[in-house]
């Protein structure tokens, strides 16, 4: 479904992503794990067109995205919940969701909204509230709900557990599993390697801009290297 081929991304003269390749197949949950600064978010931003790779290519549903502007990528079925959520803090919950459906025909809006509210009842309760007044967990739900409004085939989540209490992290991961069961393919970036590996079909480990290890979620969760480096074992 998603094929990333040998991308190299630079911030000015800093070579942030080095020859990274990976794939996501339909129906999978794939996770990219790695320490802070390893380049996980940079990779997602390159896939969604906010950053450009100098060489290499990003293919989604057999179409090359390298020259597609960022605002046209979401309508291809690829939604990105960015790091730090980046919801529109001064707009209401419902207006945020409206923006999520920006590329979709108006006729399906009510049904999409009802779906998102069913999945996240908290958002329905707070739909007239300004998004900036929501708690961290609610903001993450809003960011995910906003992305779902575009009916993505591939949902990319960047650190959905960041800054949340363990109970909320569990809730967010339950939602991710539910979405996956409902047929959404998921690319998950996480620092919380343990949680990420527990839900992932496959995983890639990133270290200073390079993929150093890959395998199934279960394999990596058992690997000594991973235990030492990321799981505190």
């Amino acid at each position: 479904m998603l094929k990333v081929n040998n991308i190299n991304v630079y911030y000015g003269s800093i070579h942030a992503i080095k020859d990274v390749s990976f794939e996501v197949h339909p129906g999978e949950i794939v996770t990219l794990i790695g320490a802070n600064g390893a380049g996980k978010s940079t990779i997602l931003q390159t896939v969604s067109g906010l950053l450009r790779s100098k060489t290499g290519s990003v293919e989604f549903l057999d179409q090359d995205l390298s020259n597609v502007p960022a605002h046209k990528i979401v309508s291809q079925g690829l939604a990105h919940v960015p790091e730090g959520r980046r919801i529109f803090l001064q707009m209401t919950v419902e207006d945020n969701l409206t923006m999520g459906a920006f590329t979709r025909p108006g006729s399906e809006f009510d049904a999409s909204l009802a779906d998102v509210y069913e999945r996240f009842p908290r958002l329905k309760e707070r739909r007239k509230q300004i998004a900036g007044t929501l708690s961290g967990g609610e903001q993450q739900m809003l960011a995910m709900g906003r992305a779902l409004m575009s009916h993505p085939r591939l949902l990319m989540l960047d650190e959905p557990s960041m800054g949340l209490s363990p109970i909320l992290v569990q809730q967010i991961f339950d939602i991710i599993t539910e979405l996956h069961k409902a047929g959404t393919t998921i690319l998950l970036v996480e620092q919380n390697a343990q949680m990420a590996l527990s839900v992932a079909d496959r995983a890639y480990v990133l270290e200073s801009g390079k993929i150093v290890l890959s395998g199934t979620g279960a394999e990596l969760a058992e690997s000594d290297e991973i235990k030492k480096a990321y799981l505190g074992g």
């Binding site: 960022a70 605002h71 990105h80 960015p82 980046r86 919801i87 923006m99 999520g100 920006f102 590329t103």
Partner: peptide, 11 residues
Amino acid sequence: EDKGAAQLMGI
């Protein structure tokens, strides 16, 4: 508010 996030919405 946020041009990057707006682009991710398809704006």
